[in-house]
Simulated assay, not measured.
Amino acid sequence: MRVNLSLRKITRNILCPRCGGREETMNHLFRECPVSQSVWRELSNPIFTMFPEAEFIEWLTKVLALLPLEKCRIYCGTLWAIWGDKSSRIHNKQGKSSQEIVNFVHEYLKELDGIKT
Rank of each mutant, 00 (worst) to 15 (best):
S97V: 03
C76G: 05
I101P: 00
T25D: 07
R18P: 03
T25Q: 01
G84P: 01
G77S: 03
T78E: 02
C33I: 04
R2A: 13
T11F: 06
E42R: 10
L67S: 04
I101V: 09
R89K: 11
T117E: 12
L15H: 14
K93A: 06
A65D: 09
E23N: 13
L79S: 07
G21D: 14
G95P: 00
Q37E: 13
S87R: 12
E111S: 12
E24K: 00
M1W: 10
I115W: 14
R41D: 13
L43Q: 02
L64D: 01
N13R: 06
L15R: 14
E53H: 06
R12G: 15
V39A: 00
L15Q: 14
I47F: 07
L15I: 11
L43Y: 01
L5N: 12
I90G: 04
L64Y: 01
N92E: 14
S88D: 08
L64P: 07
C72S: 15
T61D: 00
E107R: 14
G20N: 12
C76E: 05
T11W: 10
N13W: 05
W80T: 07
D113I: 03
N92I: 03
E55Q: 13
S36N: 04
P52G: 00
R22D: 14
E24W: 05
S97W: 03
V39K: 03
M50S: 15
E100S: 10
R18S: 15
E70G: 05
W59R: 05
A54C: 06
N92A: 11
L5W: 12
E70P: 07
E55F: 10
S44A: 13
S36K: 02
P34G: 02
E53G: 06
S97I: 04
E111C: 08
G114R: 11
I115Q: 08
K116L: 09
R31K: 11
R12W: 11
A54D: 10
I82K: 02
F104R: 08
M50R: 13
F56L: 02
I101M: 00
T61N: 06
T78F: 05
F104G: 06
A65Q: 07
L5I: 08
N103T: 13
K62H: 09
P52H: 01
P52M: 04
S44R: 14
S88G: 15
P52L: 03
L112T: 02
W59S: 02
E55W: 05
I47M: 10
R41F: 09
S88E: 09
A65L: 09
I14L: 10
F48D: 00
W83M: 02
Y75G: 04
E24Q: 04
E55N: 14
E70D: 14
A54K: 06
S87C: 13
V35G: 05
I82V: 10
C19F: 08
I74R: 02
S97T: 15
K71H: 12
T11M: 06
L79D: 06
T78Y: 05
V63Y: 01
R89T: 11
G95Y: 01
L66D: 08
T11A: 09
A81N: 04
